[in-house]
Simulated assay, not measured.
Amino acid sequence: MDGIYGPLIQNAVITRQQNIRELEVTGYVDPDTWMSLGFQCEVRPKLAQYIVRPGILSMKL
């Protein structure tokens, strides 16, 4: 692994998710996928997303 999430890593994640029936096949390393690899993780609280446009500031939760 080189730290770049490209097609090879995405295919590996999808293969892992397909092999573990309890996992949803998304191609993303979500907490369930991470824990299936033997790691412990804590779910982070939802973060606010800010969208900045010229002359306008809005917040999307």
Score class of each variant (00 low, 15 high):
Met1Gly: 15
Met1Phe: 08
Gly3Phe: 06
Ile4Thr: 06
Ile4Cys: 11
Tyr5Leu: 15
Ile9Pro: 01
Gln10Val: 12
Gln10His: 07
Ala12Tyr: 05
Ala12Ser: 12
Val13Pro: 11
Thr15Asp: 15
Thr15Phe: 10
Thr15Leu: 14
Thr15Trp: 13
Arg16Gln: 07
Arg16Pro: 04
Gln17Glu: 12
Asn19Tyr: 03
Ile20Phe: 05
Ile20Ala: 12
Ile20Arg: 00
Ile20Gly: 04
Ile20Lys: 01
Arg21Leu: 09
Arg21Val: 06
Arg21Ile: 09
Glu22Gly: 13
Glu22Ser: 14
Leu23Ala: 14
Glu24Arg: 07
Glu24Cys: 01
Gly27Phe: 09
Gly27Arg: 00
Gly27Thr: 08
Tyr28Ala: 12
Tyr28Met: 12
Val29Gly: 03
Asp30His: 00
Asp30Glu: 08
Pro31Tyr: 01
Asp32Ser: 08
Asp32Arg: 01
Asp32Met: 15
Thr33Gly: 04
Trp34Phe: 13
Trp34Tyr: 07
Trp34Ala: 09
Ser36Pro: 02
Ser36Phe: 01
Leu37Met: 15
Gly38Glu: 10
Gly38Cys: 07
Gly38Ala: 08
Phe39Ile: 02
Gln40Ala: 14
Cys41Arg: 01
Cys41Trp: 00
Glu42Tyr: 10
Val43Arg: 07
Val43Gly: 00
Pro45Ser: 03
Pro45His: 09
Pro45Phe: 12
Lys46Ala: 10
Leu47Ala: 13
Leu47Phe: 13
Ala48Pro: 01
Ala48Met: 03
Ala48Asn: 08
Gln49Gly: 05
Gln49Met: 06
Gln49Lys: 13
Ile51Cys: 02
Arg53Leu: 14
Pro54Asn: 01
Pro54His: 02
Pro54Met: 04
Ile56Glu: 14
Ile56Val: 15
Leu57Met: 08
Met59Lys: 14
Leu61Asp: 05
Leu61Cys: 10
Leu61Asn: 03
